[in-house]
Design a protein around this nucleic acid. Structure first.
Lengths: 115, 115
DNA sequence: CTAACGTGCAACCAAATGGTTGTAGAACGA
DNA sequence: TCGTTCTACAACCATTTGGTTGCACGTTAG
């Protein structure tokens, strides 16, 4: 057991922070979606959006830092590939919240029935 | 149909932005989790974290702006209640991504079998 | 009525974010 | 070899974020 907490930030929370932060931008979500379907080079991706190459490069770096995409060198270009595993982690957390909420509902149910 | 897009931000994307951005902070996630279980007043929540009252107030405002919690006046205090509906929206989006990924897998499968 | 409590909001500040341009190097094509 | 392409990275800038303190105001308790 890891020290009773619930009011202080756990260390691994920064990882979750990065994942959600990375997903909080439409361009980055689009990149994830595309590269989940099919990997693409940095410049191929950059051509899709109305901003500089460097800007898109930064977005990809944010996604990579969050583990939402991985880069694979191939010759002079880097292929970007979406990472479903990290997406799963975010999904699991949200499902956890939903479970908590359902738990509350059933506790309310229990109270009503027992009465 | 709303204009062909896929490279330009849709207007409702800002809503998604706000949801994920709100979730990208451990304190805010903790508030969501707690108020999903049981509603609490702003000052009750503020007492839980090692920061000023106003800071917690701001976090709650961000969550409210994203629709992740709602506030309900009761006498001089405001009860904060987690909103599972908005959480569901985020969850649905992530599941959508997972579906896209699974689609890619089955397309690869199809290619292999057909060969 | 008055004091204390709960909340909201403004002003301020440091740090992070999201964009830009420019430079530099590695890999490829002719 | 030489020019072009792809990428990385630094420097810079405006805006947003996340925190602070202080003040105002409605509500409750004594």
């Amino acid at each position: 057991m890891v020290v009773e907490r619930g009011r202080q930030a756990a260390l691994g929370d920064q990882e979750i922070d990065r994942i959600f932060r990375a997903l909080a931008d439409a361009t980055r979500r689009d990149i994830v979606q595309r590269t989940l379907t099919q990997e693409a080079s940095v410049s191929q991706l950059a051509a899709l959006y109305d901003m500089s190459f460097a800007a898109v490069q930064k977005h990809i770096a944010v996604l990579e830092g969050a583990g939402l995409v991985t880069k694979h060198p191939q010759g002079r270009e880097r292929l970007v590939r979406g990472n479903p595993t990290t997406l799963r982690r975010a999904q699991d957390l949200l499902e956890h919240y939903e479970q908590i909420w359902r738990g509350r509902i059933s506790r309310l149910d229990a109270l009503l029935t027992e009465e």
